[in-house]
């Protein structure tokens, strides 16, 4: 009986710990680069607020926001985000940073993607040559962008050449590398993994491929317990000069991973 009692007490204490805890659902593409670790520690130093990061795909991150399981979401799928805000789940949406998507594939480039004029042509070439293409298939920001491009061509990709793996960006790149396949990835994750995989950037630079990241606070009017005040502090900090500089200075293998978005921080 005593044990149970101690257990309950411990439980209560653990629930009412001192520094405020914020929960943020972010995307695997941010977590895999290691940027979140740096943001968490710098933010804790300055405000004594602990930020817990739950790294999932953008689709799930927004779902967690809709269920009120997190205080913040940090994602990259503008259309879904706008819907999220419009439905009243999110407030204070701010642009934080951007990078871009690139098409990676084996050096030999069997589909000739390198010579494509734009991204739709590149996708068409892969499909026509029936070269293997590895898709996230998990409703993440990257996956949504990929499906958007297929839609622009007007096809529903299917067949043995089109592999949906349903995993995070890192795992997906590993699979693509093993299968010598093409893959749409964000540049950051690719740079983070570049050394351990056998893929190269074959197509880049189309304006469709710009990949903006937004941070959104979960609406306290929907869920009274979410920590909006602290969430707002984090949003303001992240979009301030200080936060933006941290993002701009963040490098992996000597390469800048994200570009801060300081000029456009207005709703």
């Amino acid at each position: 009986m005593k044990k149970v009692f101690i257990f309950i007490i411990a439980l209560l204490i653990s629930c009412s710990g001192n520094p405020v805890v914020l929960k943020m659902a972010s995307t695997t593409s941010i977590e895999n680069t290691g940027l979140t670790d740096i943001l968490v520690s710098s933010f804790k130093e300055e405000y004594d607020i602990v930020l817990y990061v739950i790294a999932v795909g953008t689709g799930k991150a927004l779902e967690l926001g809709k269920n009120g399981d997190v205080d913040l979401v940090f994602v990259h799928a503008p259309d879904l985000e706008k819907k999220f805000v419009k439905e009243g789940f999110g407030v204070s949406r701010r642009m934080v940073m951007f990078n871009d998507f690139v098409i990676v594939g084996p050096e030999s480039d069997p589909a000739g993607v390198k010579n494509a004029k734009n991204v739709t042509e590149a996708f068409k070439k892969i499909m026509e040559k029936r070269c293997t293409f590895v898709s996230r298939g998990d409703n993440s920001g990257t996956n949504i962008k990929e499906r958007y491009i297929w839609k622009r061509i007007g096809v529903e990709p299917a067949g043995p050449w089109y592999i949906e793996v349903g995993q995070g960006m890192g795992n997906t790149l590993n699979i693509a590398s093993e299968k010598k396949s093409y893959c749409l990835t964000d540049r950051s994750t690719f740079y983070a993994l570049e050394k351990s995989i056998d893929l190269q950037i074959l197509f880049e630079g189309d304006s469709i491929l710009v990949n903006p990241y937004h941070i959104i606070a979960v609406n306290p009017e929907k869920f009274s317990y979410v920590k909006y005040r602290e969430a707002k502090i984090f949003i303001d900090w992240l979009t301030s000069e200080k936060g933006q500089k941290l993002i701009g200075d963040f490098k992996r293998n000597g390469k800048q991973i994200f570009h801060p978005y300081i000029d456009l921080n207005r709703d």
């Binding site: 895999n32 817990y52 590993n174 983070a192 993994l193 995989i197």
Partner: peptide, 24 residues
């Protein structure tokens, strides 16, 4: 647990994360 660093990240979820980062 959500694989939160220093809080709910245990050995097995770290392995999952490191694998997805390509750190085999």
């Amino acid at each position: 647990g959500g694989n939160i660093r220093f809080y709910t990240r245990n050995i097995t979820t770290t392995i999952a994360l490191e694998t997805s980062k390509g750190e085999f």
